[in-house]
């Protein structure tokens, strides 16, 4: 018989191998699933993992889908490493989008081409403001940030709905709850003609590098993480726990808000009642899948984007139901949790 035994030291090797193993397990179970559905498993898996990457447009769409997932997950990784359980990135994204949209509506045909910078800044400030409410309530009243940030997500969604139904509704829009489409100056410039990819990609690369340096190399990042994970030790060293709460939430708000701004001033081009299909929530999965590490988040957001898009393609190419996407995500997470066990435990003969 085999039994689990705690390792004296967590296995570094398994830390890296677990996501790969999880992916392999998902592929194996996916194969069984497709066989059960009467589809050719190789062709089906191909639609999920290869077809989306076959041409420039496909690649650009995967990258477009990765942007909000990656930005939110980086913010969340900072929070979770600081022991701040913010699950409201979705709300911060939406309010960031609202603020960016509000700024974009101020643009006119005569605005300078650099106007979009203001739009992105407004988005970051909007997200920060929303996250600041959670930080304030946690700091002043010790309110549970899990509940506060989650509930604020719904409030943020309603704020958006109010604005597109009311003050920001397109006057020529037959009362449909949409803002007018933004002037060109407010839109983030396209990177390549013929795709929907914008300069947002370049911004994300810079943010990614900054996040990595902040978390792994900077003293400020170190203070933040110590303050969160060992408050007593942090106090002994003169680090403030309050600082950790504020800094991590504001950073996450800024990144999520930027994600919202890049959506509305990118592919959407107007404010609509739904600016995110749940990126902020999916980013929680991405952050954990990516080991709360910037590089891991890139890998994880890539996989998530692929599964989303592959799920759509599997519908139109293979006639599979949409629920397949959810099943794949679920399998991946379950497999990862299982594989993670072996970071701290090992199998031994009893």
């Amino acid at each position: 018989m085999l039994r689990l035994e705690a390792r004296p030291v967590p296995s570094k090797l398994m830390g890296y191998a677990a996501p790969v193993i999880a992916l392999a397990i998902t592929v194996v179970f996916g194969t069984l699933l497709f066989l059960a559905l009467g589809k050719n498993p190789a062709a089906s898996l191909r639609v999920f993992f290869v077809t989306p990457l076959e041409n420039a447009r496909g690649l650009s769409e995967v990258a477009l889908k990765m942007i909000p997932l990656l930005l939110c997950s980086l913010g969340l990784a900072i929070c979770y490493r600081s022991n701040v359980w913010n699950i409201g990135a979705e709300g911060q994204l939406v309010v960031g989008g609202v603020a960016a949209g509000g700024m974009a509506l101020l643009a006119s045909p005569d605005s300078t081409r650099a106007f979009f910078v203001l739009v992105l800044l407004a988005g970051m400030l909007g997200g920060m403001a929303w996250a600041a409410i959670t930080a304030l309530l946690r700091d002043k009243f010790n309110a549970n940030e899990i509940l506060v940030s989650l509930m604020l997500t719904y409030v943020g969604g309603l704020l958006l709905i109010y604005l597109v139904n009311g003050p920001w509704k397109d006057p020529k829009g037959f009362n449909f709850p949409y803002s007018k489409t933004f002037d060109a100056a407010a839109m983030v410039p396209k990177l390549f003609a013929g795709t929907r990819l914008s300069w947002g990609v370049l911004i994300v690369v810079v943010v990614l590098a900054a996040a990595w340096i902040f978390l792994s190399k900077s003293k400020a990042g170190f203070r933040l993480q110590v303050a969160g994970q060992a408050p007593l030790a942090a106090r002994f060293a003169g680090f403030s726990a309050r600082e950790g709460i504020w800094a991590s939430l504001l950073l996450c708000g800024a990144l999520s808000g930027l994600a919202g701004a890049l959506e509305v001033a990118g592919p959407l081009g107007q404010l609509t009642p739904q600016i995110s299909p749940g990126y902020g929530f999916a980013a929680i999965i991405v952050a954990w899948l990516g080991r709360l590490h910037p590089g891991g988040c890139v890998f994880a957001s890539f996989i998530m984007a692929l599964i989303y898009i592959g799920g759509e393609l599997s519908q139109s190419r293979l006639g599979l139901p949409a629920a397949i996407t959810g099943v794949f995500q679920g399998m991946l997470l379950l497999a990862l949790l299982t594989a993670d066990t072996f970071i701290h435990y090992r199998l031994r003969k009893a």
């Binding site: 447009r57 929907r196 592919p267 949409a322």
Partner: peptide
């Protein structure tokens, strides 16, 4: 005929329709 279900009224719709 073919269809794609659960297409959100967000930036995703454009991708799905262009792919079609």
């Amino acid at each position: 005929t073919s269809f794609v279900e659960n297409v959100p009224e967000s930036a995703d719709a454009e991708r799905v329709i262009r792919d079609m």
